[in-house]
Design a protein around this nucleic acid. Structure first.
Lengths: 212, 212
DNA sequence: GCCGCGATGTATCGGTTCGATACATCGCAC
DNA sequence: GTGCGATGTATCGAACCGATACATCGCGGC
């Protein structure tokens, strides 16, 4: 999962570890906590070993020697390779069961701008199916096993059931939207005041960000 | 986390692995997928080594010998010890940061019937604080970094933000309820042999919301 | 009669991820 | 000048997952 996210992010720009973590946190903040370095660095090494990314120690720009008595530990900048881009495309195409769990779906969704419409639709529908199953499971428990459980546990189930129903509705809207071929704009009943006229087209547009 | 849940469940009745998993799934179905055996069995072994639980091979009841040519692999029934109950109480009392993340909070909440009111209140408020922070983070991203992100990523953040707002309201209700409603104080069911009966604290009120 | 098949049941293995920790530099406020 | 928070790289043990293997039981279909 993290592999997927890293490959996706590095397609926007080369980055070093710390920056990668920040971008990851910004992009995936809605679905999971900040990624741990204990995961990030080993994964970067794994990706490099596989040839999907390359690492390069940052040279101080206009490199005069002066090896520096204070041996500056350079930042390590990671860049995606052509094979890495292929790999990313492959990861998008193939969908296992993990594509539809909470984290997997979230990560895939976060990179929908780089995903073609047919795949988006497939993922959205797979996720809906999975959530519907979870919903049915919760209804079963609330219906059949209710007397075996205490009031707090039941309240938790009710809360979860409501979340499922909400997510299904959300997915329905996204699916309908996707079918009609428009950008993802779900009408929200008076949410927080974040105004945006952001429009990222269905085809993967080259978005950009820059360096300090 | 799993340790906590197992200890909590085994206080209701002794169980074998498979049953434990089913009960766990029923109780925590709203917040996490079914627990893996690759986690369950090693954890049981760990708990046994620590002395919190004991394991006993199930005897076929009114044990006639007849070692059986078909060597029946007996079910292994786990029972909580006095030290295990102490341990559970200790785990309830002490709250680390992991008490307030999605999984940790869910598990603690699921065992609120065995938790005293003051602790329930503390956990509820800690969770609210954590969700409020996440909410602020999402608002920041949606406000300040919106132009850097594509429409799908933004939609994801909006969905997450909505979930946060919902959960905060849910928590508010639970907290208000907890403060006004008098203490449930859970009676401990008989340890061995007896089928558990239902002991429900006062209803945590009416509401439904959000995602796990 | 017997055959497959799904539910019950115990168990291990490899791999991913987390949380804590360590260490070093930079800029800025006190 | 000194502390301190942000930036930055890195490792280690432990928790947890998903796949897999293997065995028994009851039940319906042929």
């Amino acid at each position: 999962m993290l592999e997927f996210a890293i490959l996706g992010l590095l397609q926007e720009a080369p980055m070093h570890g710390y920056e990668l973590r920040k971008e990851l946190t910004a992009k995936l903040g809605a679905i999971r906590a900040a990624i741990s370095y204990g995961t990030l660095y080993p994964t970067l090494r794994r990706l490099q070993a596989a040839g999907w990314i390359t690492e390069a120690a940052e040279t101080p720009a206009t490199a005069e020697e002066v090896p520096a008595l204070t041996s500056r530990r350079g930042r390590v900048v990671y860049t995606i390779t052509a094979e890495g881009k292929e790999r990313f495309a492959q990861l998008i195409a193939q969908a296992g069961p993990e594509t539809y769990d909470d984290t997997g779906f979230g990560v895939h969704f976060a990179f929908f701008a780089r995903t073609d419409q047919a795949t988006r639709l497939r993922i959205l529908e797979g996720r809906r199916r999975k959530i519907e199953e979870r919903r049915e499971g919760l209804r079963d428990v609330l219906g059949r096993a209710a007397e075996r459980l205490d009031a707090y546990t039941l309240e938790l189930q009710r809360h979860g059931l409501d979340a499922c129903e909400r997510e299904v509705r959300w997915l329905e809207e996204l699916i309908a939207n996707e079918r009609s071929g428009r950008a993802p704009t779900v009408p929200q009943p008076g949410t927080a005041g974040g105004r945006r006229e952001n429009d990222s087209p269905p085809p993967p547009g080259e978005s950009r960000k820059e360096r300090p």
